[in-house]
Amino acid sequence: MGKHEIEVTINGKVYQEEVEPRMLLSDFIRDVCGLTGTHVGCEHGVCGACTINVNGTAVRSCLMFAIQADGQQVQTVEGLSNNHELTDLQKNFIECHGLQCGFCTAGILMSTEDYLEKNPNPSSKEIKEMLSGHLCRCTGYDGIVKAIEKTIEERNQSVLS
């Protein structure tokens, strides 16, 4: 069996392409669609660098075939900020030094956005458990946890006021 035509919506844009069934979604996003903000660090589901949102849920793009995303809604790191305006979470990554080399960062942002949507008030322990699905070898996670905590705090305050 040869190639299949698929249609995937990524960050609101429709990509219609022919793919071999075995093409990983991570490769599709990067090499076919040219969205290189999604990174690949292990291709066996552990490092979390490739994490994206599929239909609003954070998943590993290295553990899905592109063909499985046919007809689905995908969001990648490129789709987070609006017209170059950084999100509160992104800004707090800057403020709290939540990144160094930045290679793990896209995946962590995608996981965190989804997680906070479903759990607006996690404890530090829960944040760390959520982060256990991501490897960062630069930061020791400290700045990342702080950035997420700051975001939660700010969101709570804006709800109150």
Binding site: R30, L35, T36, G37, T38, H39, V40, T76, V77, E78, L80, S81, H84, L86, Q90, F93, I94, E95, H97, L99, C101, G102, F103, T105, A106, L109
Partner: peptide, 19 residues
Amino acid sequence: ATRVEDKRLLTGQGKYIDD
């Protein structure tokens, strides 16, 4: 001081070898 590198890295605009 916060870092000048951060904005590009946070928005998926980094330029790594595979990009």
